[in-house]
Each structure stands twice: as C-alpha cells, then as structure tokens.
Design a protein around this nucleic acid. Structure first.
Lengths: 251, 251
DNA sequence: TCCTTCTGCGTATGACATACGCGCTACTGC
DNA sequence: GCAGTAGCGCGTATGTCATACGCAGAAGGA
C-alpha cells in the first residue's frame, strides 16, 4: 500500500525522476540528491567503466557513507536505470517531421542516438530488466515515432522499425566500444590488434575447411578497419533501404 | 616464452579447444577435463542463468574444489569464452551455396543462428572481450560468408553484411530473452506485463508532449505481442531487402 | 512539548574471484 | 630401479561487493 500511493507501481526513485512525488515534510532535510548521486555514478562510469561503479565508490565520491545511498535508491539496479536515462539525455529538439522526408529525419534520429550513446558507451552494458519507461527513453521513442508519422506504416510496424534501428545503433556502439576497450587495456592500436587477429585466424584455419574465411583474409579485408563510421553508415543504409522498400511497396 | 610455444598467443585453454596442445606426459593424470568443466558451467547457466555460474558452484557440481578449476582455466573469463563457444555449437552441415540463391541460404543461416542462441539465451550476456576466435564462432562465420559467395559483394562488404545480421540476431535473442526473464521473475504472462507497461506509459505521458506515443498506445499496438517470431521475421526481411537492393544495384 | 517520521551511517553477513603455497603423483632420464 | 621434476588437487587467506538491520539524532506536526 504505502509504496503505491501514486499508483504507477514504479519505484520511488523512478517516480522522482519523472517529477512526480514531492519531498515529505517531516524528518531531517536530505543531505544528498538523486541527481547528485546519479551524476557521481555517471562520472565514475565514464572515467573507469561501468564495472568501477560500486555503491561504496559512489558514496566515497560524494563524501557520504555507503549505506546512505540506500535512502535514495532501493538497490543498485535502480541506480543503473537512472544512470542509463541520464546517459541517453533528451533527444535533440525540434520537429523532424516538418518536411515530409521521413528518411532524412529518421536517419538523423539514428545518428543522434548514436552520438548520445557514444558519449557514454557504458550504457549499452547496463543490463535491461524492464521495458524502457524512463523520461528520456520515452522521449527518444516519441521522437523516433514522430519521424515515421507521415509514412504509410501501421503503428505496430513503426514500433518494429524503431526497435530494429535502435537495436542496431546499440549494437554498433557496443561493438566499437568493446574493441576500443580491449585496445585500451592491451595498449595496442586498432590496426595492430586487427592484424594480430587476422594472423591468429590464419594460423588456426586452413583453406579447405575455411575457404570463405581464407578468401577474406587473403583480400586483407579483416585488417583494414576503415573509418569508425563506415560500419555504421553501411548498416544504417541497408536497413533504411529495407524500410523504404516496404513503404514503397505499400503505395 | 613458456606460454607461447605454439605461437598463437592464445591462452592454454583456448588452444586446447582448437585441438592444438597435447597433454603433457609428466605429472599426475588430471581428474577433470575442460569439456566436463564447460559442460557443468553451461548446465548451470541454462538452469539458473549466467549469474549463477560461479567458480565454486561449478566446482561443487563436479565434486571438486573451487581452486582446482584454475588448473584448467586461468580466469573466469576464459571459462565464459569456452561456454560461449559451446553454446554456439557447430553450424548446420552441408553447403548452403550450392544453389545460387544467396538470400534463401543466408536467411536459413540467420534462422539457424537464432535457434542455436535461443537454446542458450545467456550467451548474449557473456561480455565480449576479444574478436571471435573460437572454433564454432569461426565456423559460423565461414558458413555465413559462404552463403554470400556467389554475390557481387566485395569481401569487406560480405563481412559487413555478416556482422549486421549476426548483430541483429544477437540483439533479437537478447530482447526476447530479457523480457521472458523478467516475466519469469515477476510471474506475469507476457500479455499482462505488456499491458501494465502500456498502462504505465499512458499514466506518465500526455497527448501534447507525446503525440506519437499516445497514438501508438491508442492503436493498442503496444499490448499485442504477436507471435514471438514476428519481430524477428520483420527485422530480418527488412535487412535482407536492404542487402538485396545493394546487390541489385551492382548488376 | 512530545511524538512521528525520516535522516545518516556503523556493523555484520554472505557471495565471490583469485593469489599463494603445500603435499603428493607419476613420468623421464639415468 | 631411482632420483628429479613437472603437474596436480586443494586449503587458506585477502579483498571487494551488495545489502539487511537497527540505532541515534533531526525536524516538523499535534
């Protein structure tokens, strides 16, 4: 009962993030803020990675004790969820669907999402435990859907397209970030580690059982990274081409 | 020096997985096998989730002590990598590129990959720390590339297409599995939890600031899950359409 | 004024990964 | 046969985590 006063069924910290729930008038004034806690945690994650975010580390950073954080957040999961939404940040402002070119608007949305996630690459490693219900996530969703407003897609299809593309963006960010993280740890450059990967594959595969891999290796394509954007551009264009084909087939 | 006898630079346990490295002739006979350890770990992950896989739990399952595992695996990461490859399993046999229809073959590859991953949904939560260099990963890669053999794509493009689709498959498996995991934990059915998510969104969004989300909610599309395959089919078709457009544009 | 509610936080518990080193085993070179 | 030695199982210890519990003090409401 006590926890469902507002009827959302949301944890208290999440309700606070939505701006519902005002401070109770009794008791001592809180010495911390959800926002300060989340900021500190985000800072740690950006500096030392998501793995470095522990309750005690966050508390130390704030000059408070570990357990005091639990007055603001009921479990670490909640903190992670809040961090995630902070990392997303609000989507870019403006109405993208003004001009009727859905593709340009939607591509811009994807690029903006990538930029936002790349600023805090650890977000893609936050384990997902609920469907997205945080303010910024929903705002990004609203924004993406509105790009598809003037298409002939059904509502369900719009959502499917949105999930397809946002999944792609997340995945792309995760992959490039993982590679960079490994490189940072080993101290190698991207070229070096790609080359050693290719060398390893060459050692371990033979031309009869792995003809296609061998061909790729011989073409040297596993060793040339291309610009960091290339993979993203390629994938996004393919997906948008596919969506465009669907839209065209409808009209 | 000592660890690089074979020159691959791979950890010992990984070399064992590739079938290089024979058992040293000295010393007592090992009481365990890498394969038995990995099997036990996979069993635990399949039953109780990846989070339940701890060194002590695996050891207990095998009737051995925790520390004995470190004679076979230098760190938990290695065990996870081996588990991952075991979960992938070998790709389906046969030559998919016999008939020249790349799309059918490649789609079959994607479906087979999804089936393989769905059998062990925790694989997608194994943190990635190196480019894939395990026997089964490489075999899947070989297999996917060979489906694209008769297309006019360049080697680099084939790899890009492969990563695009395998990333999509991984993501799709992750999402459906995450949702199922939440449902298992809360005990709700998919319909119930989707409905409560929709109700929550409705409470928290308003029609002026979130017109597109509101429209989707009103259409009721957030509440009808459709078959579990629907989302996968939709995304895969879009991507393949996009790839096909590229291939057609070339000829 | 007193009582309720909320605060910060010390302490304790139980996982967990893993370093270190000891006693033992079984093969190799003599 | 016999010593030397590499490889094995594992007990113990360390340090890190998340978090349950409960106390003491603060501040508003009656």
């Amino acid at each position: 009962m006590a926890s469902e006063e507002s009827g959302t069924g949301l944890p208290a910290s999440i309700e606070t993030a939505w701006g519902l729930r005002e401070r109770p008038s009794k008791g001592p004034r809180p010495g911390l803020t959800l926002a300060r806690i989340v900021d500190a945690a985000v800072g740690i994650a950006s500096t030392d990675g998501l793995g470095a975010v522990s309750m005690s580390r966050v508390a130390t950073e704030l000059g408070a004790s570990t357990m005091s954080l639990y007055r603001y957040v009921s479990a670490k999961d909640e903190l992670l969820t809040l961090m995630e939404d902070a990392a997303y940040g609000p989507p870019p402002p403006g109405d993208p669907a003004k001009d009727e070119d859905w593709r340009a608007g939607f591509a811009a949305w994807a690029w903006a999402l990538r930029t936002a996630l790349a600023r805090h690459p650890w977000v893609v490693s936050v384990p997902i435990d609920t469907p997205p219900s945080m303010p910024n996530s929903v705002a990004w969703m609203e924004r993406g859907l509105s790009c598809l407003r003037h298409t002939n897609l059904g509502e369900g299809e719009k959502i499917s397209v949105l999930m397809l593309v946002s999944g792609f963006v997340r995945n792309e960010v995760r992959m490039t970030f993982d590679i960079l993280a490994v490189n940072r740890r080993t101290g190698d450059s991207i070229e070096t580690s790609l080359a050693s990967w290719a060398r390893l594959l060459g050692k371990v595969t033979d031309a009869e059982r792995f003809p296609a891999v061998t061909a790729a290796l011989r073409a040297g394509e596993l060793e040339t990274p291309g610009g960091p954007d290339d993979e993203f551009v390629f994938g996004l264009e393919r997906i948008l081409d596919g969506v465009e084909a669907l839209i065209s087939a409808r009209s």
